[in-house]
Write a protein that binds this DNA or RNA. Structure first.
Length: 845
DNA sequence: AGCACGCCGACT
DNA sequence: GTCGGCGTGCTC
């Protein structure tokens, strides 16, 4: 990039001119800020939180965020000049910078890593960034004046369809170094848009739709048409279906909006060629619609009205009362009690007071349904921040929050990074969810904790919602620090489901198991299907079987990068590693001995689906797990099919435990409860309890009492008793006792350190040294390990884990983290461990 | 994170 | 004899 800065030699000093320096945050994992010099004539242009372009190292030009401006020249080195100023207003606000500093500190990572995670990549410019003409831009129709350099770029981009240019090329074209302002201006006028990688090139999602040709809308014309089609039953079928789906007469606009063509062509009862014939003969007309990535309901509801139950009204009032004394309130409400309506009320309330609102949901729960519902209430004031969104869409939300266009944002984990500066309320729904915690890469933050800190900084209230609150959260309410509001009644008077435990060991000994189904579960499924009711089956493992085994020589295929056996996936006929993604074809014969006796061992969702299809051929079984929902809209499709009762049985992993409510589900089966309970982790019981209760909550809606069948080899395990009676409190009392006794959160804080090394011995040695250094600084009792985790090698790295327990008190915690960092640095500075990677995870989940 | 500088194996 | 492997250190 031709970004050699032709710095104009300073004017003779008329007045005492100040020399300004800016500390910038580079979007890199570097421990400190870098100081650049502001050119005199740009002194008025520096904005804290604005982006500037600097040269970093010999080659790289990067955009970064100004974190501070001062007059202290660096003593050790000559500061380079800032090359360009992109923004005249902050893109990162002051409250954000404060929050990001806290995050870097608390989660033991660099500010650069936080910035990197926070900014949508279209805000992170580099010389490799590319621009493309906006598909919606038409040269004649632009309402904005276009400057000379802008026109130059426009012309260059118009030479061919979809042409793109890098910033370097733009710089060369214009022959000046300061072209970012031009690009920014073009972006604001919606003439171009920006992307980082060729893969991000804008390709609008187009849906083919059909509608009735307008001259048939007339009732008499339609009569005639029916007459003409009398001898063409297939075409008549299509037409009937169309009229059935689109209320042409009740609503004139309905026909204009039309119907997705696929709704007609993919129906098993209709002939696709008949659809095409109708189009060819001009009865139906086909048209394309550019749709949002987020499939929204295209039938806006005229008015939103929900009637609050008495319990809901009471809960809402109580929350408001508690907020007058406390900043944080937990809404403990059983599934199906109608928490969302309460949220909507509270959001409306906060907006009326002039503040901003952030509504966080776990990824899996941020569905089209909830967005549509919120859209109907909040209209264009609502921004949606979802990980499935393209970068351009994310920048739009970011800028919308900055400009005040979006007052409410509903979003996933990363929405805590958005540039709010006037928050009145944050809602964290399903606050116990582990998906609020980011594992990889840094920052390893928990959005719930970040939200609480952000609310604290901005003087906002926080409402946490859950049917099964995290033990840490409930503890805070018990200690009187946070408020607690209970919402125990299910909406519409549906009782809690009846839960039955079935002993798989007994059945197995008596040879009564049908594959992995107990007779109880199987007959109950049959019974429910006979009643036209639906069934959800939960199995917390995907694939067909966790491994295969040669019956003759005992060979078991293992992953070459990880210390795990390869899972068998029948559908794709592959062996796959669930940790690194390695896959191989399923062998016909054993590569070790040539035997063909390869047997699958254990079971996952795929096998459950398979077995059920064989045992109950009449049932329509669908599977929902990572493998069937990878494609873009397949998740929506599976949900829609189940909702419309196209499928009767839904088999799935965790995905089926949360999110959607289905009115017709009357039975939930947990195929193997034991694999969930027996997990080597202090949170295993909590996770199991949450999972059982959440999945049970899927059973029985709209007045129907549901049933849950839990299959286990040992029905006497203590946790079941609490699940059956849905006794959160008793579970909590038991669990908190355990946590106190063994010194786990909320009584202590945990930092998990992981040492990774390609060499097993070096990993162990580095971990031993790290442990010694930790013990020296924190004491023996604070350090657990080192220990190789159950899966001790992932992606060719051998792992060692050390758990550090620290007192919760703030000053102690801060000090302890400094000690941990010091210990880590000792190991890093050892040259034999140069290739070791050390990772700190604060508050791991 | 990149990228340059710097020391040891298979090639014209 | 050189080209290039990636190990280590630095970037205001």
């Amino acid at each position: 990039m031709s970004l050699t800065f032709d710095f104009v030699s300073p004017e003779p000093a008329a007045t005492d001119r100040v020399t300004l320096f800016a500390d910038v945050i580079l979007p890199l994992p570097l421990p400190k800020l870098y100081t650049y010099r502001v050119p005199y004539e740009m002194n008025d242009e520096v904005v804290i939180g604005g982006r500037v372009i600097v040269q970093f190292g010999a080659k790289k030009t990067l955009s970064c965020i100004v974190a501070a401006v001062h007059e202290t020249p660096p003593a050790q080195y000559q500061a380079k000049y800032i090359l360009e100023f992109i923004d005249d207003a902050p893109v990162v606000t002051q409250p954000q910078l404060k929050l990001f500093r806290w995050m870097a500190d608390y989660y033991m990572c660099t500010l650069g890593e936080v910035i990197n995670a926070a900014l949508p990549s279209a805000l992170k410019l580099s010389s490799e960034s590319r621009i493309q003409l906006h598909p919606a831009f038409v040269a004649e129709g632009s309402p904005y004046p276009i400057s000379e350099p802008e026109q130059q770029i426009l012309t260059a981009l118009s030479t061919e369809d979809g042409k793109s240019m890098t910033f370097t090329e733009v710089g060369e074209l214009l022959g000046v170094s300061s072209f970012h302002k031009v690009i920014k201006s073009l972006m604001q006028k919606d003439i171009i848009f920006l992307f980082e990688h060729l893969a991000d090139k804008y390709s609008p999602k187009v849906v083919k739709k059909v509608r009735l040709a307008h001259h048939f809308i007339e009732e008499s014309a339609l009569e005639t048409l029916f007459g003409q089609l009398a001898g063409r039953p297939k075409q008549l079928d299509v037409l009937m279906r169309y009229l059935q789906r689109v209320p042409v007469y009740q609503n004139i606009h309905a026909n204009h909006r039309g119907l997705e063509k696929s709704a007609l062509t993919s129906s098993p009862h209709l002939s696709p060629s008949a659809v095409n014939t109708l189009i060819k003969n001009g009865v139906l007309e086909q048209f394309d619609v550019i749709v949002s990535r987020f499939p929204l309901d295209d039938e806006p509801e005229a008015k939103l009205h929900f009637t609050f139950s008495e319990a809901q009204t009471t809960a809402r009032d109580e929350i408001l009362t508690q907020f007058s004394q406390r900043d944080i309130v937990l809404l403990h409400g059983v599934t199906g009690a109608g928490k969302t309506e309460i949220y909507i009320e509270l959001i409306r309330n906060a907006l009326d007071g002039g503040g901003q609102v952030l509504y966080l949901l776990p990824e899996i729960a941020l569905t089209a349904q909830i967005v549509t519902r919120l859209m109907r209430v909040f209209g264009t004031r609502l921004g949606v921040y979802h990980s499935k969104f393209s970068d351009n869409e994310r920048v739009e939300v970011w800028n919308g929050v900055l400009s005040g266009r979006f007052q409410v944002v509903v979003g996933v984990r990363s929405a805590v990074f958005l540039p709010f500066d006037n928050l009145a309320l944050i809602i964290v729904d399903e606050e116990h969810e582990s998906s609020y915690k980011q594992y990889e890469p840094a920052p390893r933050y928990n959005a719930r904790e970040v939200a609480l800190m952000m609310a604290n900084y901005q003087g906002a209230k926080t409402l946490l919602g859950s049917a099964t609150p995290a033990v840490e959260t409930y503890y805070q309410t018990r200690a009187g620090r946070w408020g607690l509001v209970q919402l125990t009644k299910r909406f519409g008077e549906a009782g809690l489901p009846e839960i039955e435990l079935v002993d798989t060991r007994k059945h197995r000994e008596a040879k009564k198991m049908h594959n992995h189904f107990t007779p109880e579960l199987l007959s109950e499924i049959e019974r429910k299907l006979g009643l036209q009711e639906q069934v959800i089956l939960f199995q917390n493992r995907r694939g067909y079987s966790p491994f295969i085994n040669c019956l003759d020589c005992g060979w078991i295929p293992k992953c070459k990068n990880c210390a795990v056996s390869l899972s068998y996936h029948k559908h794709s006929h592959e062996l796959r590693c669930h940790y690194c993604g390695y896959n191989d074809r399923m062998p016909v014969e054993c590569p070790a001995c040539g035997s063909r006796a390869l047997k699958t061992v254990g079971f996952g969702t795929e096998k459950i689906e398979d077995d059920l299809k064989i045992m109950l051929p009449a049932a329509n079984v669908q599977r929902m797990d990572l493998d069937t929902t990878r494609a873009k809209n397949s998740y929506q499709q599976i949900i829609a099919d189940f909702e419309n009762q196209v499928t009767n049985v839904l088999v799935g992993t965790q995905m089926v435990t949360k999110g959607l409510d289905f009115a017709n589900v009357s039975l939930v089966g947990i195929i193997n409860a034991d694999s969930i309970i027996h997990y080597p982790d202090f949170r295993a019981h909590e996770r199991a309890f949450q999972m059982f209760v959440q999945v049970s909550g899927r059973a029985g809606r709209k007045g129907k009492k549901g049933k849950v069948i839990i299959q286990t080899a040992d029905p006497t395990q203590v946790i079941f008793d609490k699940v059956i009676r849905n006794d959160y409190l008793e579970f909590y009392e038991y669990e908190i006792g355990q946590r106190r006794e063994y010194g786990f959160p909320p009584f202590m804080r945990v930092i998990r350190l992981t040492v990774k090394h390609v060499d097993q011995l070096l990993a162990e040695q580095a971990a031993i040294l790290l442990t010694q250094e930790l013990v020296e600084r924190l004491g023996r009792e604070a350090v657990l390990g080192p220990e190789a985790p159950y899966i001790f090698r992932i992606r060719n790295f051998y792992l060692q884990e050390i758990t550090v327990k620290i007192d919760r008190e703030h000053t102690v915690l801060k000090q302890a983290k400094a000690h941990v960092l010091a210990a880590m640095n000792v190991v890093k500075d050892q040259k034999e461990f140069k290739q070791a990677r050390l990772v700190a995870d604060v508050d791991p989940m």
